[in-house]
Design a binder for these strands. Structure first.
Lengths: 107, 107
DNA sequence: CACACTCATAACTCGCTGGTTATGGATCAT
DNA sequence: ATGATCCATAACCAGCGAGTTATGAGTGTG
């Protein structure tokens, strides 16, 4: 049972891959060749990373003749946001509990 | 140059490790033994994961006699939130640009 | 048609890492 | 003091995954 969060974290866990994704976010649509020149690795490696990103729903490719334009998918990071917020919620709740406890002890 | 974000993503990229962290967030302070019983792996493996989480600044251990109580560090996920927000900012900016473009084309 | 270009896939290598068992140090209980 | 418990470390193993080169399919260009 590989969950959505796990897939996202694992996909973005690789620095090179995250750099590619970040570049797509910053610069918008990019061809594989353009990405390759900045990635510092071979073209097949870039293609593989793009495949992984695509699989994770972070990226989409648009065919245009012999080249493919990739772009980051807006909203694809939402699950990450949700998760982190959920974790922070636990901290706040615990903090509230602590406050309550202190208040009760104060009486 | 391994950045903060990379470390966090990589650390949380492993499902087992993320589960341990999540449990610490949900249930609060836990001993290694308690975590081990729920993790489905050996105690040394759990210890290693806790070491990695600690290294990433996600977790802290409190010595109490022969057992160590671990707890999730509040605020440690902030960099993740910042990063995802930044990426989403790029999308919004691009969307605004598109809107501007359409508006200009409309005239 | 022939050639060049872009990308994806295949096949392979190799280092990392997540798991194991074994062990030892420290702390509590009897 | 002895034994039991809890945890961390060491040493090792196996699988994964990120990189490589080689190649081929598809698409423009002369």
């Amino acid at each position: 049972m590989l969950e959505r969060h796990d897939l996202l974290f694992k996909t973005l866990g690789d620095p090179t891959r995250r750099a590619i994704f970040e570049r797509l976010c910053r610069e918008g649509e990019q061809t594989v060749a353009a990405l390759t020149t900045h990635a510092g690795i071979s073209q097949p490696a870039v293609s593989k990373h793009l495949g992984v990103l695509k699989q994770a729903g972070l990226v989409a490719g648009r065919d245009a003749g012999r080249q493919t334009h990739y772009s980051a998918l807006p909203g694809s990071l939402a699950p990450l946001n949700d998760w982190t917020r959920e974790m922070e919620t636990f901290w706040e709740r615990r903090f509230d509990d602590l406050e309550d406890l202190l208040k009760r002890m104060d009486q």
